[in-house]
């Protein structure tokens, strides 16, 4: 139980990372270290490998080479890393046949949480969906479905958030709230890694431009 007594500081470090997609090298020799309280915005042109980087960071696919470390330990096959991670892809994992509350509940339970009715209500309030709690998600708009998925963030206690295009289909006010949430998360020592083409106004914002890690012509293919 020593891990609870003295938690290592949150730190995500990427060293010498190369990722490939169907024999094409997307980026190579990527070096970056995210310290506690950072918000990292990954930039890059379409097809630069932003989503691949996020998938690799989430441990969903192994990198072609290089190591990713969380709190000093490699993330490969590391279950405690998976537990300290919240990932949201560019699709919203929301089932149209289930109600808003049911969708939030199964997603939370899958991560080993069981949110109480109050927690659920307050999370829905944060994303402006409290009136839709028992509405089937098939009747919601794209932005509202996205908000259902984002409500997970208010329930999640994970220190590392990896969000792929979280602002897609979200209105102006929602974008503001989400930025506020990211700031709160950072102030608690959490780390967020996200992709977005939108300029963000956050204090601890760091940017990582994948265009700087493009492979040379000679080694663009493996």
């Amino acid at each position: 139980m020593s891990q609870w007594e003295e938690p290592a500081p949150n730190e995500l470090s990427i060293s010498n990372l190369t990722c490939t997609r169907e024999d094409r090298v997307l980026f190579t020799q990527l070096e970056y270290t995210c310290c506690a309280g950072a918000v990292l915005q990954v930039l890059g042109f379409n097809g630069a490998g932003k989503t691949t980087l996020l998938h690799t960071l989430a441990g969903l696919m192994p990198p072609a080479s290089g190591v990713i470390r969380w709190r000093g330990e490699s993330i490969a096959g590391n279950r405690s890393y998976t537990r300290s991670l919240f990932y949201l892809g560019h699709q919203a994992p929301v089932k149209p046949a289930l109600t808003v509350a049911e969708n939030i509940q199964w997603l939370a339970r899958l991560r080993g949480q069981s949110p109480s009715a109050e927690e659920l209500c307050s999370a829905l309030e944060q994303v402006d969906l409290e009136a839709y709690q028992n509405t089937s998600c098939g009747h919601l708009s794209a932005g509202q479905k996205r908000r259902v998925a984002l409500a997970q963030l208010y329930l999640s206690a994970a220190p590392l958030w990896i969000l792929d295009e979280p602002f897609t289909a979200i209105d102006k006010e929602g974008v503001g709230r989400l930025q506020q949430l990211l700031a709160t998360h950072a102030s608690h020592g959490g780390i967020s890694v996200l992709t977005s083409h939108q300029p963000l106004r956050l204090e601890n914002l760091h940017t990582l431009d994948l265009a700087a890690f493009q492979p040379d012509e000679a080694c663009a293919y493996v």
């Binding site: 989430a58 441990g59 969903l60 998976t82 537990r83 991670l85 990932y87 892809g89 560019h90 699709q91 919203a92 994992p93 929301v94 089932k95 997603l107 899958l110 991560r111 080993g112």
Partner: peptide, 17 residues
């Protein structure tokens, strides 16, 4: 199929179990 298309499969992979 539907879990693959809406990204639920990724949530399955990253679940606590």
């Amino acid at each position: 199929r539907s879990d693959y298309e809406d990204g639920s499969l990724i949530q399955f992979q990253l679940s606590a179990e």
